[in-house]
């Protein structure tokens, strides 16, 4: 019973984190058809930015929105000045470009912060835990879960209920038609990458709060994000969430039962099975649908 509850809470946390990371990743993939390797670097930037803001006296929970705003700007600029120039080329160019960007950002992080793990000392109100049926649930985990689920809901609301979200969906469906009805496609692209980087930044900030920030964190979580994205399939909000659900539960199950070394293996095997059996993902659609 106790271990079941522990697995349940662990997976809730992972589902929240993976969801926001994968939603951002799937957005760029879907709208721009770019496999953004630098998503990992965005996650890492978010982690370090939250850490830096906290070290300069900001409350960690206030640092998260500040980080997100900064990453939104970073994403916007990277789209405008870099990714815009490869969007209509062969898709290997986008991979190469974002891989180069990833190298630069991780190299800079190594130079300025070294490979050391930087962790945040929690403020008093985040310390402590509640005991539910023998399973320990720390306050910080509860807060992170709530933030993650709140952000997921925000993304759904934005994509589904606002005019801008509709414009993004329209661009994704048919770029030329979107242009014809007066949508500024380049601005939509900037916005898309901005939102994606913002979500990656939130994920990184929350991870820094939970564990620590390090130059290697980006690549490590990029792998999980890839697994989640392909598991769920593109084209819907529910897709990445379903993927996060499957990966979150299997990861926490496996690491609680056999040990953490098997979790990537299980995730990767799941994805390969899904790709073989249903190449569009568990809940894949041809285009964005709520």
């Amino acid at each position: 019973m106790q271990i079941c509850l522990q697995i349940f809470f662990d997976s809730l946390l992972l589902i929240g984190l993976y969801s926001i990371g994968a939603l951002g990743f799937a957005l760029i993939w879907g709208v721009l058809n770019v496999l953004n390797i630098a998503h990992g670097a965005f996650i890492m930037l978010g982690g370090y930015l939250t850490f830096l803001l906290w070290r300069n006296g900001l409350d960690p929970l206030l640092a998260i929105p500040a980080t997100m705003a900064a990453l939104f700007a970073v994403g916007w600029l990277i789209q405008r000045f870099l990714i815009d120039y490869v969007v209509s080329g062969p898709h290997s160019l986008g991979i190469a470009l974002t891989y180069g960007l990833n190298l630069v950002l991780i190299g800079l992080a190594l130079y300025f912060f070294t490979a050391e793990y930087r962790s945040i000392n929690l403020p008093p109100y985040l310390r402590g835990y509640v005991d539910i049926g023998g399973a320990k649930l720390t306050y910080v985990r509860i807060v992170i879960m709530l933030i993650a689920f709140f952000l997921t809901a925000c993304v759904w609301w934005f994509m589904d209920r606002t005019e801008l979200g509709a414009a993004i969906r329209a661009t994704r469906l048919d770029m030329e038609a979107a242009r014809l009805v007066g949508i500024k496609v380049r601005t939509i692209f900037d916005l898309t990458t901005g939102i994606s980087a913002m979500l990656a930044g939130a994920m990184g900030g929350l991870i820094a709060l939970l564990h620590s920030a390090s130059p290697a964190m980006g690549d490590q979580y990029l792998l999980q994000v890839l697994i989640v994205t392909v598991l769920g399939g593109l084209g819907s909000i529910a897709g990445p969430m379903l993927g996060a659900l499957v990966l979150g539960i299997s990861t926490s199950l496996v690491s609680n039962l056999w040990g953490a070394t098997y979790s990537t293996l299980v995730g990767a095997t799941l994805v390969l099975l899904v790709l073989v059996l249903k190449p569009s993902g568990l809940r894949g659609r041809a285009f964005y649908e709520a």
């Binding site: 870099l82 120039y85 490869v86 080329g89 160019l93 190469a96 470009l97 891989y99 180069g100 960007l101 990833n102 190298l103 630069v104 950002l105 991780i106 190299g107 800079l108 190594l110 130079y111």
Partner: peptide
């Protein structure tokens, strides 16, 4: 090593943009 990484990253980006 980290400088090498940054330099090679910059080179990759430049080649992709300017000499694909």
């Amino acid at each position: 090593a980290e400088i090498t990484q940054v330099v090679s990253g910059v080179i990759v980006v430049l080649v992709v943009l300017l000499q694909p």
